[in-house]
Amino acid sequence: MRICEVFYSLQGEGTEQGRPTAFVRLAGCNLACAWCDTPEAQDATAGKEVAADALLDHLWRKKCRTVCFTGGEPLLQMDEVVEASRRLSGMGYAVEIETNGTVDFRPVQPFASVCMDVKCPSSGETSDLSLLPYIREKDSVKFVVGTNEDLAYVEKVLKHCPIKGEVFVSPVYGADEKGIARWVLESGFPVRFQIQLHKYLEMK
């Protein structure tokens, strides 16, 4: 598995926000979002190869029993992520996968929860909305928004794509947070407003 870094921090967003988590950041991404905060992870040759046994041994030495695979796009290394998730789940870990919604995540769902980051227009990229029906109640969907066009896109998606899991609307860091919060209050959609906690705490 090609890994950029493994670090221990508080989960900054999603259903587990605030929970101590071990993050495994995988190398390589098939998108190049305009506001990507980890551009170094876009390179599939970044970081180093780490054997699954070595990764699991490293994680086991941490006190934390929650693991998040992120990137880049972790599901570009699907076989490795599925195997690591299966083994971690079997050891009693809670596993989460953060994905950009361009790769079918169903193979990993028996062993992990999924957070699908639906790309809005300001990102310059698009996600595969046909994956949304496969989001379960234990999974979640996140829209990172920075403009009114993004909010209009969120509204369009929510009207046409019923989502079983929890839905988060998260402002791009530095965007009009109060305006976006006001939209959440007035929209009537079953969504949660959420700032990116790790940005404000200046943590990874």
Rank of each mutant, 00 (worst) to 15 (best):
K62R: 07
E98A: 01
V145M: 04
E40D: 13
D57M: 09
A52Q: 08
A46R: 09
A94G: 11
E80M: 05
V50C: 03
L26S: 00
R87H: 06
E5D: 15
M1V: 09
E16T: 11
G90W: 05
P190L: 14
A52M: 09
R86P: 06
P20A: 10
A54R: 15
R19V: 13
C4V: 14
S170N: 10
G90V: 06
G92Q: 08
F23C: 01
S9C: 05
G14K: 01
Q42W: 13
Q194Y: 07
I97E: 00
L201V: 09
F105P: 03
K178E: 14
K164S: 13
L10D: 00
P162R: 15
N148Q: 13
M91P: 04
E5C: 05
L129C: 11
K159Y: 04
L185W: 13
I180A: 13
V157L: 10
T147Y: 09
V118R: 05
K142R: 07
L158Y: 06
K48D: 07
Y153D: 08
C36R: 00
G179T: 08
N148F: 07
F105G: 08
L26G: 00
G28K: 13
T21Q: 06
D117V: 03
G14R: 03
G146E: 05
F168H: 09
D150A: 06
K199T: 14
A34W: 08
E177P: 06
D37V: 15
F143T: 04
F193H: 12
Q109C: 08
D53F: 01
C4A: 08
V24Q: 01
A181E: 13
C64S: 08
E149I: 11
E166V: 08
H198T: 11
W60V: 03
V167I: 15
F189G: 11
G47S: 07
D128S: 12
S170W: 01
G14M: 02
D117S: 10
R106W: 10
L31N: 13
N30G: 05
G174A: 14
V172Y: 07
R87A: 02
L10K: 01
E40T: 02
R25E: 02
S113R: 03
P39N: 05
C68M: 01
K138R: 15
C161W: 15
G18D: 03
G92S: 13
M203Y: 08
I3P: 00
V172R: 04
V169M: 14
G146H: 08
G174Q: 14
I195A: 10
E16D: 11
C4G: 03
R65N: 12
V172E: 02
R86G: 04
L59I: 05
W183C: 05
D128C: 12
S123D: 03
L26A: 04
